[in-house]
Amino acid sequence: MRILFLGDTVGDMGVKLLQTYLPKLKQSLKPQITIINGENATSYGRGINERVYKQIMNAGADVITLGNHAWNNDDIFNFIDQKNNLIRPANFPGKNVPGRGFTIVNVNNVKVAVINLQGRVFMDTLDDPFQTIDKVLKQLPSKINHIFVDFHAETTSEKQAMVMYLDGRISALVGTHTHVQTNDARILSRGTAYLTDAGMTGPYDGVLGMKYSGVIKHFLTQRPSRFEVEESGRGIVSGCVIDINNDGIAKKIKLIQLNPNNSYQV
């Protein structure tokens, strides 16, 4: 089983980059399932709406994951319950939370579970992701051993603690949210693939996808400053590709990054 995962899609540029490069990546890498984090994919960089959802799916996604901006667009409440391939963090608190925190995809008669979690350190206080993942894993059919987790979290330590907690129980855990790809792709001792952060797909010349002028102004003055998505300039596509054995044990994880200084040949 080969999984292609691309990190946070940011703004209109991120969606356009997916439309341009995702078909080429899929043709080159031939993944069986493609997962895209779309929680920053609207034109203003927060959340997702149905129009953008359709654009990402049409570009070649099989599953779209979200994060802390899941509810930033009221439009999502009109369609998330009808989309089995759009998932939000499973540990949002309360009863009757819209949508679902995981989905199961049938790939050539092999079932793959895709789970979305959100961290709590330096982020909104959601339910405990460690206890949540235990509950989710118990809900999965016993025959499913291909399990992928998108852990949308701020700190490296929380992500590393989570993968150590899950090592051998899932096939792969890849972090999102920080928008900067890390260089620590590895297979843990019990066979779980791990990457602290997949990085982002979107503007290359901003600050985490935002225009740098507003971000710099905030740091210089410590006063509120409007952060706007960068809409022009160069782009970046970041993620990873993971190969998993039939028993659900990961055998390889490789970084993917397309940018003006490190182009990926497709």
Rank of each mutant, 00 (worst) to 15 (best):
V107G: 01
I56D: 06
V180Y: 01
G168V: 12
Y264E: 10
V105D: 06
K95P: 03
G202D: 09
I244L: 12
G67F: 13
D134P: 05
N49V: 00
V52Y: 03
G209K: 09
F102I: 13
S225N: 11
D243F: 00
G11Q: 07
R190T: 08
Q222W: 03
T34W: 00
T176E: 08
V110D: 05
Q118V: 13
G101K: 02
I187K: 05
D12L: 08
Q139D: 04
G14E: 10
A172G: 15
L4E: 02
R169D: 11
Y194K: 05
R51W: 04
M210W: 11
I147V: 14
F5N: 02
P203Q: 02
H69Y: 07
K159V: 15
E231I: 01
E50I: 04
K143I: 07
W71Y: 11
G94Y: 12
G235A: 01
Q257K: 08
R186W: 04
R51A: 13
K211Q: 08
A161K: 06
G209R: 12
N68A: 13
D184A: 11
V15M: 05
P260N: 02
I244M: 03
E50F: 13
E158C: 10
D184T: 14
I36R: 09
R100D: 10
E50G: 02
L188I: 08
V180W: 00
I256T: 01
I115A: 07
P141L: 10
I35K: 13
P203S: 03
F5K: 03
L188W: 03
D205E: 14
Y204P: 03
D134S: 15
I144N: 04
G214L: 00
I133R: 12
D134N: 15
Q82M: 06
T155L: 15
R186C: 14
N245M: 10
L173T: 09
T192F: 09
G235N: 04
R46P: 00
I56S: 06
E39T: 06
S225A: 06
L220N: 12
D8P: 14
Q257D: 03
S157T: 15
F102T: 15
G14W: 07
P93H: 05
F122E: 13
N58G: 10
F227I: 03
T34N: 10
N259H: 12
V97L: 13
T34M: 06
V215Y: 07
H179I: 05
D12W: 00
T182F: 04
N109V: 04
I170V: 15
Q19R: 12
T103I: 11
N245D: 10
S142H: 14
I115N: 03
V112Y: 04
G11R: 07
V110K: 06
H146T: 14
T9G: 10
F130P: 01
V107Q: 02
I48D: 00
I64W: 07
